[in-house]
Amino acid sequence: MSLLRVCGLSRSFGGLKAVDNVSFDLEAGELLALLGPNGAGKSTCFNMVNGQLPPSSGSIRLDGQELVGMRPREIWRLGVGRTFQIAATFNSMTVIENVQMALVSRERQTFGLWKPTRSRYADEALALLDQVGMAAEANRACGVLAYGDVKRVELAIALANRPKLLLMDEPTAGMAPKERNELMALTRRLVTDHKIGVLFTEHSMDVVFAYADRMIVLARGKLIAEGDAESIRNDPRVQEVYFGTGKTFQPHASLHEAAGGHQGHGARP
């Protein structure tokens, strides 16, 4: 059984079909990139998996359990972590306090904070920071960190819930090339060590081709290609969407069954 199974997922806004009958699977220990030009439906699809948007139709199953109809908090408690395009940390709190707050939330103790947070789960928080290379910065305020380091802290916060599935929304946005590669290499190591499935959106094609196991490509809400880097790179529909007008592609009705591509261009969608 796949870790994540998305079947016939659709979402309409009035007369606009933002996501149109999209299906894909994600295995434990796999990095799957969700790609497409602006307006392709990536964010809508991503937010439906996370529970922030209800689908108009379709199914989203995590380890066989249906997620449609659940709130984001409920989905998080089932083992779905998330990082954001703009890193979400408390700037006035120290690095370790940010992770401790995530651990307190995991243990459902956020309504009993008469005991100072700094005394709770400090060892576990430090261990998580060590995994992402931030243990030495544990007592610094997040607000003074370089952006790449903040992204590492955010990753530690996401790992605090021991996720089975990690959703990463443009994890390297705003980062320099060296920082991008360091963060994705770290993510790859954590995925391998803990068998976490990762679904991520990303505009930097060098990152995608270097680290994604597979890719799925959306255009105008439809799934138009999926597979490894080489097949995605050579797919004429993907080339048209990324480098042509994007107006004439004809999605294959049975594309999900015909999977098999990765990708590779240095262009940004």
Score class of each variant (00 low, 15 high):
L167E: 09
D169R: 01
G51S: 11
A125S: 15
Y211T: 00
L26P: 12
L183N: 03
E257F: 05
R140P: 15
G51D: 07
V99L: 08
E154D: 12
Y211K: 11
F13P: 01
T110C: 00
L129D: 14
A40T: 12
I157S: 02
G261Q: 08
L129I: 05
L16H: 06
G260K: 15
L159E: 04
N47G: 08
G41K: 01
G266C: 03
T110K: 14
E202I: 02
E66D: 14
R140V: 12
G79W: 06
T44E: 10
L223P: 10
L255Q: 10
V153C: 15
V150Q: 12
D25P: 02
L166A: 07
G14L: 09
M93W: 08
M134H: 13
L186E: 14
S231N: 04
E124D: 14
F46L: 00
A253R: 06
E240R: 11
N47T: 02
N98G: 13
E240M: 03
V191K: 10
L129A: 13
G261K: 10
P177Y: 08
D213Q: 03
D228N: 15
R5K: 14
T187E: 12
K222W: 00
G174D: 03
K222R: 13
V68L: 09
C142R: 11
M175Y: 05
G221M: 00
S231M: 14
Q100G: 05
R268T: 03
R162D: 08
I96Q: 12
R214K: 06
G133L: 04
N181D: 13
H194W: 05
D20M: 02
D123S: 15
G143A: 09
N98H: 13
S204F: 01
D20H: 08
L223Y: 01
G133P: 09
Q100W: 02
D25M: 15
N139S: 12
G264L: 12
A160W: 01
G58A: 06
R188P: 10
R118E: 15
T248D: 15
S23M: 11
Q52N: 01
G15D: 09
C45E: 11
K115E: 15
L113P: 02
G246T: 13
T83E: 09
T117N: 11
S231P: 03
R180E: 11
E97R: 10
N91K: 04
L4Q: 00
K178Q: 07
N161W: 00
Q85D: 06
A225K: 00
P116R: 04
A185Q: 04
L128W: 09
S57F: 13
